[in-house]
């Protein structure tokens, strides 16, 4: 059985733009992500209040099942112009971002010995 893979968007919003960014992410990105097989795990807002002058950090975590699930979403997204369009649209609301792919520590051995 495939292990759960976590796709983590770690996004620092432009000052005062945290809520707007999350709303855009939910409306313009999340539906397509779900269609590519990604399952929303959680959305964390830090600090847990909306800031006006400073940046909120959004940690949005998705899951897929195993490397096949990961490739399934990855191959679809890179040839979907709507995905590129979303990130371009969001660019003005983002100060900095990273995307990580990981798994629970208990799954590391199984995932890395293929």
């Amino acid at each position: 059985m495939d292990q759960t893979i976590y796709i983590v968007d770690d996004i620092v919003a432009a000052p005062g733009k945290g809520r707007e960014l999350l709303e855009l992410y939910r409306s313009a990105y999340a539906p397509g992500a779900r269609a590519r097989g990604m399952v929303l795990d959680r959305e964390i807002v830090a600090p847990p209040m909306w800031l006006d002058e400073l940046s909120n950090r959004l940690l949005i975590t998705w899951t897929v099942q195993g490397a096949p699930g990961w490739w399934g979403q990855g191959v679809q997204s890179r040839y979907d112009p709507a995905v590129a369009e979303f990130w371009q649209q969001a660019d003005g609301l983002i100060a900095q971002r990273a995307r990580y792919f990981g798994a629970a520590e208990a799954d590391v051995e199984g995932i890395s010995h293929v």
Binding site: P68, G74, V114
Partner: peptide, 16 residues
Amino acid sequence: LHPYHWALIDRWFDPE
């Protein structure tokens, strides 16, 4: 299937 490929290297190839 190896994570060195999809979880590390592929970010250079991934527009996201």
